[in-house]
């Protein structure tokens, strides 16, 4: 079987699929990064709602995280994909616009972001609770507004606690983009599938795509470890003292 592997199929220029694969890879990274960023924003909002929100906000946030964590990502993505843009379009139409153009990338980011947000809420909530309460109270005592407390004290102080969980979420985000292939997004897995079925070189293409994903994971791992060491500078002493 190994004699029959034709590596020229991976050539970067047109009859080869290498270039298409790399383009799909780039799109996967964009989707993952966008969805991850959106997830962090939702996570901060969700964690604030759970920790500082009123009774109703707290329960709503709880319902959101419960659903996200209990239902398969594939199903959530399908649902968000249809519901999300459907609602957006209807809202736009009722306000008199002609309907918003939701392009593929934005829709994919929306879908990944909503899923990531559920997990990010939990990670960030745990991290905020790990910040000694005295620090936040001290900031409040100085007369800082709640927003300023959040921005200048709570968020920077919780960052080192959030990093392990958030690093894990980044890994999940990169791999979750593959699920978009089932909906038909042209990201790495989808391009790989197209390349594999039109050339029938299934092993070659799936292994190549696997190598790309693995490379992304390993490189991210190294970067995130370095960042974690940096962010934990002040905490190590405290840890050892315990």
């Amino acid at each position: 079987m190994f004699q029959s592997i034709d590596f020229s199929l991976l050539a970067l220029d047109a009859p080869g699929w290498g270039g298409a694969l790399l383009q799909g890879f780039w799109r996967s990274i964009q989707l993952a990064a966008g969805g991850y960023a959106m997830g962090i924003v939702i996570g901060i909002l969700g964690a604030s709602a759970k920790l500082y929100g009123g009774l109703v906000m707290r329960d709503l946030a709880q319902v959101y995280t419960t659903v996200i964590r209990a239902v398969p990502e594939l199903v959530l993505m399908l649902l968000f994909y249809y519901v999300g843009t459907d609602l957006l379009n209807r809202a736009a139409q009722s306000m008199g616009f002609a309907g918003i153009e939701v392009d593929g990338l934005a829709a994919g980011i929306l879908v990944i972001g909503l899923v990531q947000g559920g997990y990010a809420t939990e990670v960030i909530r745990g991290a905020i609770r790990a910040v000694p309460h005295g620090q936040i109270e001290a900031a409040q005592a100085f007369g800082m507004s709640p927003l300023k407390v959040m921005r200048r004290v709570t968020l920077p102080a919780m960052t080192p606690h959030a990093i392990p969980g958030m690093a894990n979420l980044w890994m999940i985000a990169t791999k979750d983009t593959a699920l978009l292939a089932v909906i038909g997004f042209s990201e790495l897995t989808q391009v790989t599938r197209q390349a594999a079925s039109s050339t029938r070189a299934y092993f070659l293409f799936f292994l190549s795509a696997g190598a790309l994903y693995l490379m992304l994971t390993l490189v991210s791992n190294v970067i995130l470890r370095r960042y974690e060491v940096r962010a934990r500078r002040g905490l190590i002493a405290a840890h050892q003292a315990r």
Binding site: K175, D176, V182, Y202, F206, G210, Y213
Partner: peptide
Amino acid sequence: CTVIRGTPLLLQLWLFYFGLGAL
């Protein structure tokens, strides 16, 4: 563990199913 955890399950599934199918 690193390879399996570092690649999407969907890709592994398709590699097993269609890759072996080609064989």
